[in-house]
Design a protein around this nucleic acid. Structure first.
Lengths: 211, 211
DNA sequence: ACCTGAACACCGTTCAAGT
DNA sequence: ACCTGAACACCGTTCAAGT
């Protein structure tokens, strides 16, 4: 791991590793310096301070995320596929969502997904403000779901909630751990269906009313 | 603000104020001691340490949250009303969701809402595993939405995303700030409708198939 | 241009000592 | 039973000094 001289990228790479493994709160300037084998103050020369180091890290990661290629036969299916790709990608970088949010880069991060979603929502016949609303609803749902998931994983074992319902199958279902992938797909599908079909139906009604 | 002697509740109250105003990360033992007019180490005698102080704080707040009374004529409307109540309540305690999650109290916190949702989902004809899934879908959506909202508020001004779509009304809609209340209600309504109606339809199909 | 150690102001926490 | 100050191990950051 010998190095000719310390570069900004060395710092970013090592910092990225620490964050990936133990989260951003575990990234201290002193540990990072130890890992790099330099004095703490050298880091400051290369990246300014802790906050701008994290900022650079986040921007680099966002830039690497790349585009989204939807799959599926219908617009609804393709919306679901975009959601799944987005979720998988966010899960590969478990700390990214929060870090991106804190730095006001959310809109930028979701631009590729947003563009893909706009295409599908257009294909389903939505336009203008209603199309924008549908796209945002899906975006909020996906990001929200991932945030909830992340929180659940970080969380210690949940206090079991000994709830008594007069529906034993439901009580058993609540006792089982959540199948998050399944719940996610079902939720997105349900939301999408409602957003697209509702609009589809309204559009047809309008058309027939015009005759 | 003179006090006979320091009590555990004094510590919790003052800590709650600090957290409410500046967030949990602003709660330092030293600032808290200054605010209380005692030595830092007194706090340790009353509450153990910083983590158990925050834990006690969260548990107290959760216990104070109270029950949820749904409103509306149909199960779907009442589900939406539960969601709105839950969202409003979470927004009154902006730091609570994250703190609750970190301490594994999520399930307990959402128990009142869960019970209300189970009743409505039952009223709509869902049972067992599918009822549980519907309840969880709504729960995930509400919590996720609030988390996204919170992140957006904390976030600095978003980099505007100069997107070029061939739909000027949509571009304008994206340029406007999000009407979160509206988006929230629409999303929950869309999801709920799909979850309940889909099930309703499936049930009717089954019934007619049995004849 | 790049790297260093010393120093400062902040943390949470422990501990022995007081009443 | 309750409160205290001193001390420890950790932070991020600045600065003057080196090459």
């Amino acid at each position: 791991m010998a190095r000719a001289s310390l570069t900004r990228d060395d710092v970013l790479d090592t910092a990225a590793n620490l964050v990936k493994q133990h989260g951003p709160e575990a990234l201290t300037m002193r540990k990072l310096a130890a890992e790099l084998g330099t004095a703490v103050t050298s880091i400051y020369w290369h990246v300014g301070n802790r906050e701008s180091l994290l900022d650079a890290l986040v921007r680099r990661t966002v830039a690497e995320l790349g585009e989204i290629r939807p799959a599926g036969r219908t617009p609804a299916e393709r919306v679901v596929s975009v959601a799944r790709i987005l979720r998988r990608r966010l899960r590969e970088h478990p700390h990214l969502v929060a870090m991106v949010h804190e730095r006001g880069l959310t809109e930028r991060m979701f631009l590729p997904a947003q563009q893909a979603l706009v295409r599908e929502v257009h294909a389903a016949g939505l336009r203008g403000a209603r199309a924008a609303e549908a796209v945002r609803a899906v975006q909020f749902q996906v990001v929200g779901f991932v945030l909830v998931e992340r929180n659940r994983e970080r969380a210690p074992a949940q206090q079991p909630t000994e709830d008594r319902y007069d529906d034993p199958a439901l009580a058993r279902a609540f006792a089982r751990p959540v199948d998050e992938e399944r719940l996610f797909v079902r939720s997105v599908r349900a939301l999408t269906q409602s957003l697209l079909d509702g609009e589809e139906a309204a559009r047809k009604q309008e058309e027939s009313a015009r005759k």
